Amino acid sequence: MKLLNTTTKNNVLQSMMNIIEDKRQDIIKANKKDLDAFNRDDQALYDRLVVDDKKVDGMIQAIKEVKDQDDPVGNVISDTTLDSGLKIVNKTDPFGTILIIYESRPDVTIEAAVLAFKANNKILLKGGKEAVNSNVILEECWHKALEENGLSKDWIKLMHINREETQEFLRNPSEKLDLIVPRGGERLIDFVKTHATCAVLISGRGNNFLYVSEHADWDKTKKVLINAKTDKISGCNALDKVLINENLPNFEARVVELANTLGSHQVEILTDAKVSALLKDLPKVENEEVWYEEFLALKIVLSSVSDFDEAVEKINKYSGKHSSIIMTEDTDEAAQFMEQIDSAAVYQNASSRFTDGGQMGVGAELAISTDKLHHRGPLGLKQLVTNKYYVFGDGHVRV
């Protein structure tokens, strides 16, 4: 793959910013076609689909932020000269061709492409059918930006194929793929992992947990919990499950208070363990599958645990390994929790809504990786490169 210089890449991104601004109303009109055709039964998916002036501003800002970041390609990781005189340089290198599969959010068509391109990767975008009109016009914008700068449209391509054709492409790709990022449900992820012949980086579900320690500050707890649950229900960083230590001072009164507060925010509550005895009028968790579920709705589970170890065990068993929170004023307890919890992001006394590239200082993100190879957490520009060893000799042979 040809390596583009930084100036060329940044020129494409500047062109794209200008084009999106010029095409602003056309983009919003195309999105309205998608919204009009969408069944609003799934409010979270609908929210992700919307493109308005604010969302267009966000697209432009995401491109600007990536444009302003340093080029991640060709940076020296290590430079060593051995006693033999052999010089070994390890440098960052593009993946090659990335395929991302995602639902609904048209802004992914911007963020995924800008990150992949700045990191000198080609990208194939497979959006959902619910966003087809939005994605088509955004692809047209990308192609115009590339052509204005003398580059092939092949750098950024939207895959105009249906679900069955996508599955066949994964089984027998018509072009070389180097990395696949599936952003969707367990079935999609399992299918990709089963059939992919290249590296797969998992962008997992949320199903995030908050543990209320007996050492928690109650006012902080309510503030963080409500934000994590209600700020944006369609976000993969939204809260789904709350575990309250039974030794929390005024446990019974505080459980009732929390239920009332959640109710005032129209949050549906499911109960379990000792919480069920205190909130008898509310429905109980019916089966274990609920504990694995990511709600993406104004819905939450309130449960109790007897101690710290039970909380850790339950979170590691059921969570999506995305984000987990402990509310505690005990710093040693917080450190222990953060070390033992198997999640991409662990928090003390802060909302899980911060698990986001922009909020974490990464900038635009391709996804939130819940994988452990090669990166975990927000996939920003610096994470869309691999590495390569450059070895310089002078007739060296191994003996």
Rank of each mutant, 00 (worst) to 15 (best):
T230S: 13
I77G: 06
E111Q: 15
N133P: 02
T261R: 12
L279I: 02
K388G: 07
D41F: 10
F191I: 07
S306H: 12
L4S: 02
F308L: 04
V346I: 11
L262M: 13
S351R: 01
F117Y: 12
K223T: 14
P283Y: 02
E310Q: 14
E164L: 13
L302R: 00
D356R: 09
N162S: 11
G185N: 06
K118A: 09
L82M: 14
D93V: 09
V346C: 12
E268R: 07
D356I: 12
R353K: 14
K144Q: 15
R24D: 05
T80G: 01
S351H: 05
G206P: 04
D93P: 00
T221E: 02
F392L: 14
D83E: 15
I19Y: 04
K67I: 08
K284V: 11
G393E: 08
A367K: 00
K55E: 12
D307Y: 10
I202F: 02
T230L: 06
L225C: 05
Q383P: 01
N90Y: 05
S15N: 11
T331Q: 13
I98H: 02
F354L: 13
Q336C: 10
K144S: 13
G128A: 07
D79K: 08
K144N: 12
I20H: 02
K29H: 12
G206H: 00
G127T: 08
I300E: 00
C236E: 05
I269N: 02
R40N: 15
S78F: 08
R24F: 09
F251Y: 15
A238W: 01
